[in-house]
Every structure is written in C-alpha cells, then in structure tokens.
Computed example of a mutant assay.
Amino acid sequence: MSETAEVTVYWRPGCMYCMRLRATLRLHGLRPAMRNIWQDPEAAAFVRSVADGNETVPTVVIDGVAHVNPAPRLVVDALRRS
C-alpha cells in the first residue's frame, strides 16, 4: 500500500522550464500545490536554500525532498502515486 506523494512546485512567471512543467501537469490533469517565488518571499528563500543561493525554478519538493529543475516525468510519476 502506498500513499499519495506530497508535491509542491516552486515557480515564477516567464520561466520556460516552469511553463513546460505546468503544461505537462495540465496535460495529465494533475494539480500540485504551486508557489510563485516572486509573490511569496518565504518560497523564494526556500528555493535559494536548496539551489546554492540561486532562485532556480522550477524547484519541486516531493515528500520532503527538493529537486531543482527536475524532469517533468519525475513530478508526474510522484503525483500519480496512490
């Protein structure tokens, strides 16, 4: 028996990698928690803490583990876990 993964996507407007990830998730009908680092100072600080001081997005947290610019497939697979 497995549980649904907890997934949070940190993103910002204009980021092509974020757009690619969001489009892939929409295509699969998946809706993780989304945090815009330009509107959420705590989210931006978190991303900097796991990305060597940079605001590299998308950064995705899956079950408490941060993934900086992960392959969309990794995120899709995590969200499909049930």
Score class of each variant (00 low, 15 high):
2 S>D: 07
54 N>P: 00
4 T>R: 15
70 P>W: 04
26 R>Q: 06
17 Y>S: 14
49 S>M: 00
73 R>A: 12
5 A>L: 08
36 N>R: 02
31 R>N: 01
56 T>L: 11
29 G>R: 14
36 N>F: 04
46 F>Q: 13
63 D>P: 11
38 W>R: 15
64 G>Q: 14
18 C>K: 05
40 D>F: 01
73 R>Q: 09
3 E>P: 01
79 L>T: 03
17 Y>D: 15
36 N>I: 05
82 S>N: 09
79 L>C: 03
28 H>F: 08
23 A>Q: 12
29 G>L: 08
62 I>N: 09
4 T>V: 09
9 V>S: 07
41 P>E: 09
38 W>N: 11
75 V>I: 09
50 V>Y: 10
67 H>F: 11
1 M>G: 10
63 D>H: 09
23 A>D: 11
24 T>Y: 00
24 T>W: 00
69 N>W: 02
53 G>W: 06
16 M>V: 01
39 Q>F: 04
28 H>C: 00
78 A>C: 03
23 A>N: 09
3 E>S: 14
70 P>S: 10
76 V>P: 09
73 R>H: 02
24 T>S: 09
22 R>T: 06
25 L>R: 04
58 P>A: 01
56 T>F: 11
13 P>S: 14
53 G>P: 04
55 E>W: 03
30 L>K: 03
23 A>K: 09
33 A>Q: 14
1 M>N: 06
33 A>E: 15
42 E>F: 03
54 N>H: 13
20 R>E: 12
44 A>V: 05
43 A>I: 05
75 V>H: 04
61 V>Y: 05
28 H>Q: 09
61 V>G: 04
18 C>E: 05
63 D>N: 14
59 T>I: 14
24 T>D: 08
16 M>N: 00
11 W>Q: 00
41 P>H: 02
38 W>V: 11
76 V>N: 06
31 R>K: 03
81 R>F: 05
72 P>E: 05
79 L>I: 03
50 V>A: 13
37 I>F: 04
69 N>F: 01
32 P>M: 11
37 I>D: 01
60 V>Q: 03
25 L>A: 08
6 E>N: 08
17 Y>Q: 15
69 N>K: 10
32 P>R: 11
40 D>V: 02
81 R>N: 09
79 L>A: 06
77 D>R: 11
48 R>W: 07
78 A>T: 01
43 A>H: 07
72 P>Q: 03
62 I>V: 15
